[in-house]
Write a protein that binds this DNA or RNA. Sequence first.
DNA 1: AGTTTTGATGTAATCGATTACATTACACAA
DNA 2: TTGTGTAATGTAATCGATTACATCAAAACT
Lengths: 344, 344
Amino acid sequence: MSKANRIRIKDIAKEARVSTATVSRVLNNSNKVTAKTRRRVLEAVERLGYVPHHVARSLRVERVYSIGLIVPHDIDYLFSFPYFNLFIHHLAVEARTRGYHIIFTTTNGDESVQLHKAFAMRRIVDGLVILDVSDEDPRIDALTELGFPFVVIGRPNHKLPYLWVDTENEEGARRAVEYLISLGHRKIHFVNGPQHLAVSRQRFEGYSRALQKARIACEPTLIHNGEFTEESGYAITKAILHSDKVEAIFYASDTMAIGGIRALKEAGFEVGRDVSVVGFDDIPSASVVSPPLTTVAQPIALVGTWAARLLIDLIEGNKPVPKSLSVELKLRKSTRGGVTVVGD
Amino acid sequence: MSKANRIRIKDIAKEARVSTATVSRVLNNSNKVTAKTRRRVLEAVERLGYVPHHVARSLRVERVYSIGLIVPHDIDYLFSFPYFNLFIHHLAVEARTRGYHIIFTTTNGDESVQLHKAFAMRRIVDGLVILDVSDEDPRIDALTELGFPFVVIGRPNHKLPYLWVDTENEEGARRAVEYLISLGHRKIHFVNGPQHLAVSRQRFEGYSRALQKARIACEPTLIHNGEFTEESGYAITKAILHSDKVEAIFYASDTMAIGGIRALKEAGFEVGRDVSVVGFDDIPSASVVSPPLTTVAQPIALVGTWAARLLIDLIEGNKPVPKSLSVELKLRKSTRGGVTVVGD
DNA sequence: AGTTTTGATGTAATCGATTACATTACACAA
DNA sequence: TTGTGTAATGTAATCGATTACATCAAAACT
């Protein structure tokens, strides 16, 4: 391992009595090599225990075989992004089957755009996965201008076209609210995420569509913007209880719903009987809280898989198309009569 | 960005009318440069928007400024390892303050050792974080033989010395069981993790010590080996209930405890009154299940921080020493009388 | 046999930095 | 003015691969 006894391609060439070019050809499966020569080279590789030097190869072929994932420093983010570990895991699995690694780092909001640019310009990675996007996200402009490959998780508004993977947020929210309506609820509070996030807009869109279809007026006083955190779910619910008689609440994330349930219980409500609660995401805790949460499940593993797949296609010059992944409403006990299966 | 209009150090040299060597010296803060020259170079860098090429630099300085994290393919693992998100996040934060990135990939058990060796030999990373270790883990032998820097999360038995970061598993288990004893329990079931993991041995050690101190016999029939998964916690608990009258169960992970609580509820027990349950890890769900779980909290963020810190120290030739991090018993509602604070 | 074609192999440039060593410029002393 | 020492700068080798192009050997054709 020490530099001295390190085996290089040159050593293999000498051992197999061929040129380094031939060794390289064998290693890269070029077909322009005699079977006999190939065998001799491979034997030498075996005998000397040679493995290629990744950095040297990268310098020449101008590819580092890795994709970058830069997440905000802000710790809440990792928890508000449901199943982050599932996502990164499946991202990595798919990447690995294609011969790529994940390069992971964190950033605070201020330096985020700069860091994305730096990753691109320094060629630390071959492409980037963009998380936590808002409308007109500046990273999209920056990377597009650099001509650098990237895929966006989510589907924000932007003047430029871009490659994305998204779950059907609008559809999911619509189905959740339609379900609440089918249960007989008419006044449905909506605790949404931060306004600047595209995902919040889409979930709101679904909420409002469902009401529209049922000819229920969309009351601005029923709409609340949280932070996707448990604390904000708790606080907003407290506030709602303070000013209103509540019968149904749709939370744009399970994390907020869990905070909300805590507030409701403290106020003496029995969730699932006195009040219906629906979440979004289906995080691990969702099935384990009391009562188990009715929620819109996101296929987060698939999001990871597709993000890697599309990004690597883009890097390798194929022509990937954006991918939309469908969601599923999981009926559990936090809603009145959570047994009936509801179609669309 | 396209190869053509890429700025290299050569271009800066020409622009500033100096040699590439001088540019490099300015960029690497060598002191052997006149203030005037330095200024001229920096202006050129600014004007042309130069950023160094990471791979080219790495090839020459023989350092890639990244540390590797290879986790088993097996999906259950990510959930049984509590707070994986938190861990990787803090690992990345600390690494970043030192100028390093995380390279993340997955593996199945069979190729794990080979993959760790490949990462080392191909110089894909400068050092490795070793997770999920068992006694006499072959990765420790392989990397030691290669003379490659690595840090182990946990503290398995091994004939060779190695650098590690660990939480006080034995201490934590001991305190948990002592607490159960202080509550008046004498027959305490222990649902442990897989036998081959060092962490299971250590938690067992703590369990057995606590009993010993209280002069309670350690009954082999009370010891069970699970998989750290919710399903196994559920199944084992079912089995226990089938053959025995139960009063207290200590689970070696919250995930298993949550499965266990489900089994207990189904059997009509009220956890926290009829039976005491203690978990280990303090995963996010722990505070949110019903009843909230009394558990041993691991300082997982610190584990991440210290892992990065020690590994980078090792890479850079400092002489880091292993780090032990203390745990905390969190009293909640799953134990009888979960209000009293218990010292040691 | 001589010429052309084809396919295998070798030589050397290249990727973009860093750095050992050589050279130059300058300050100061004699 | 010249010599000497020191600090700044330049030249070119180097890191370890890949690959364009040159060369060579053998097969195929006339």
